[in-house]
């Protein structure tokens, strides 16, 4: 029985070794495109005419004071919150506003939450197993068999995120920083085209931060990465292009130097920090 199954699954055996087969179409421009997006909660405008473009393979940092709409923007892209008006496109083919979270996830958009969210009752290994890019429908999941190739892939990611020694520990016992890493690891397992990373270095030591910066920069190019972060030092260390959000819309965009010299930005944001 299992031999037959394995044979019938031949085409999927090398799934993780082949380049990402996301159906997203980026031949005609950016991978993510938000236009005139508006969201309000009970009269409060969380997002106000937001326009944002992320190019394929880009590493973008998004900063902004509290309440600037950073998390809400991520909620819109991943389908958690529906905007009142505006359009959100993934590549030139996929209108994200017509899809729900799992559909968007399987298109190749991965998200790391602000508060690290891992499955605490499962082991580190199982967390990564669930994140693996496979058929995620119910019956195939029920019948899924763990194969050597999968195991190798998981071990590979375990090594990347430095948790190989904690492989069979429950994720619940990990430290805050380790959970952040595990969550990033889960994103890697997903092999997304676009990674949305919300405050990846909160609660990390200087050393862990460095490794995270290294990892994120190494991803850029193959995948597009959007990082929301408060830690200016960290942003400076990885940023090529920075977008400043303020009151739900883009205040400034450019290199870190450009942005930090922008008088508007200094007024509303850096002024507070300094």
């Amino acid at each position: 029985m299992s031999i037959i199954q394995e044979l019938s699954n031949r085409d999927r055996v090398f799934e993780f070794l082949t380049p990402v087969a996301s159906p997203v179409d980026v031949r005609h421009g950016p991978i993510l495109y938000l236009e005139d997006v508006n969201v309000s909660f009970d009269g409060f405008r969380a997002i106000n005419n937001l326009n944002l473009t992320i190019d394929d393979g880009e590493l973008r940092c998004i900063i902004g004071p509290n309440g600037a709409g950073k998390t809400t923007m991520m909620d819109i892209i991943t389908g958690k919150t529906a905007p009142d008006t505006g359009s959100v496109w993934f590549g030139s083919r996929h209108n994200l506003l017509t899809m729900n979270e799992p559909e968007i996830a399987s298109l190749g958009i991965g998200r790391k939450f602000q508060k690290p969210t891992v499955f605490e009752a499962l082991t580190v290994f199982e967390n990564l197993e669930l994140a693996m890019a496979t058929d995620k429908r119910v019956i195939p999941t029920l019948r899924a068999v763990m194969k050597a190739e999968y195991r190798d892939r998981i071990d590979e990611v375990l090594e990347t995120i430095g948790l190989e020694n904690l492989r069979d520990q429950l994720a619940g016992i990990l430290s805050h920083g380790q959970k952040q890493w595990l969550e990033i690891g889960m994103l890697l397992m997903q092999k997304p085209r676009l990674l949305l990373v919300d405050e990846p270095v909160a609660g990390m030591t200087e050393q862990e931060m460095e490794r995270t910066a290294e990892l994120l920069t190494s991803l850029a190019g193959k995948q597009s990465v959007v990082v929301v972060e408060h830690d200016m030092g960290f942003v400076r260390s990885i940023a090529r292009k920075v977008t400043v959000l303020h009151q739900g819309s883009v205040l400034a965009e450019g290199s870190m130097d450009q942005v930090s010299n922008d008088p508007e930005v200094i007024k509303v944001y850096l002024g507070e920090e300094a």
Binding site: E101, A105, F113, V118, F119, L130, L142, R143, A144
Partner: peptide
Amino acid sequence: SKLGRVSIACRDAEARARFLG
């Protein structure tokens, strides 16, 4: 089965499971 682990995932962190697809 893996579905059992997914169930636990849904139980403990529904949103995370959803964003995994």
